[in-house]
Design a protein around this nucleic acid. Sequence first.
DNA 1: AGTTATTGTGACAGTTTCATGACAACGATA
DNA 2: TATCGTTGTCATGAAACTGTCACAATAACT
Lengths: 233, 233
Amino acid sequence: MSRQILVVEDETAIREMITFVLEQNGFNAIEAETIEQAQAKIKEPYPDLILLDWMLPGGTGVKLAKSLKQNEYTRTIPIIMLTARADEDDKVKGFEAGIDDYVTKPFSPKELIARIKAVIRRVAPTALEETIDFHGITLDPVAHRVSINNKNLDLGPTEFRLLHFFLTHTERVYSREQLLDNVWGTNVYVEDRTVDVHIRRLRKAISGDGHEDFIQTVRGSGYRFSGKILPSG
Amino acid sequence: MSRQILVVEDETAIREMITFVLEQNGFNAIEAETIEQAQAKIKEPYPDLILLDWMLPGGTGVKLAKSLKQNEYTRTIPIIMLTARADEDDKVKGFEAGIDDYVTKPFSPKELIARIKAVIRRVAPTALEETIDFHGITLDPVAHRVSINNKNLDLGPTEFRLLHFFLTHTERVYSREQLLDNVWGTNVYVEDRTVDVHIRRLRKAISGDGHEDFIQTVRGSGYRFSGKILPSG
DNA sequence: AGTTATTGTGACAGTTTCATGACAACGATA
DNA sequence: TATCGTTGTCATGAAACTGTCACAATAACT
């Protein structure tokens, strides 16, 4: 289940950009332009996190933060403040009001996502890294544990990352190069064929019994992780 | 195969944001900060599209656009100009220089992606990522999967590309030469008649049951992929 | 019908791509 | 140091893919 994030930001372009980036990263964005709108949207089900702009038409965001943090039901919601500059005064006031972190504009999407994840991890550690369950394969990113049909799997680090990537990116073909980028990391010099070998190791590991081939070879293109087995005609 | 997009932008935060958004959307981003860097990176294989900032340290982006559009090898590369404001003068100069579209900053990622896709669609009308459904034939470019009446089809790479081309270009006759250009790629030396063989293979693959000849032979002209069955006579 | 041009089909060989087992390098650890 | 687990690379064989050809089948035309 994806996280609800309330974006309180009056500049449309920035708000849209943030919303877009959030949704690209699997978050569910709710938008608000003013403090009033925001307050109206902070109700059950409560958002999991609030991105709060510092300068808002109805007053400073800190005002909202303060009131939220004083309310019994909303004080546990983590708040990340968006400030226009790295202003010490803003930061101090923000933290006094109870914010959990801040991001200074302009920021890169990567930074924003990283901070959101960090805050969620801090406040609700189990939340972000949820256990994945896919057709009998269970992967717990936090415990770094994999099981298939309740039988524990012993994977090497690379196989674990590869499986984790596949489980979060199913039903899609990835070229060897893309897999290297995503699992091994960019600017790592490794042969394309190395992927084949790790695919084979992972296949071997998860091919115990039951389901046949989760990892499907797409000749000429790459590999696909899929739970679907369509009848071939 | 993902499209290469060259991002020419000197502001790091914006460039990173754009790159991020592009890669989230399956594009392959190449970055350049200056006109010189950009020119160095515009070579084979040429990028499929260029996002060009208006204000650059080495001069205006329009200068680069002009030189690209005057070069035989680069003039077909679509260029989208990034302008700081909706300045009529900028736009006019841009279009005079041969740009294909423009986006005014600040822009939302959705708008950017939409414009990129629109331009690519205009220039290279093959579909990008959407699943195509045509009279029971389903082709998913992302998963690299084809099914006909929910039965999985096993196609070789060339057959897949051929079918993909046909599905995005139905009801129209294509000569063997045109098919070679579009499916095999230009500057590939292959016999005309090779197309016949692949047509046959594709026909065989999709001729399971139900609809018979999607691929119609137009004697003397080429082939046509059609859902219509015209009464013979 | 006979002729010619064009297309369908099966076969085949060369090439490409992939799966697999082996192995050495490396680092961690006892 | 010795051992173990992990990892990247390679060699090899199997399988799939591809382009081309020869010939059959079909359509068009006289």
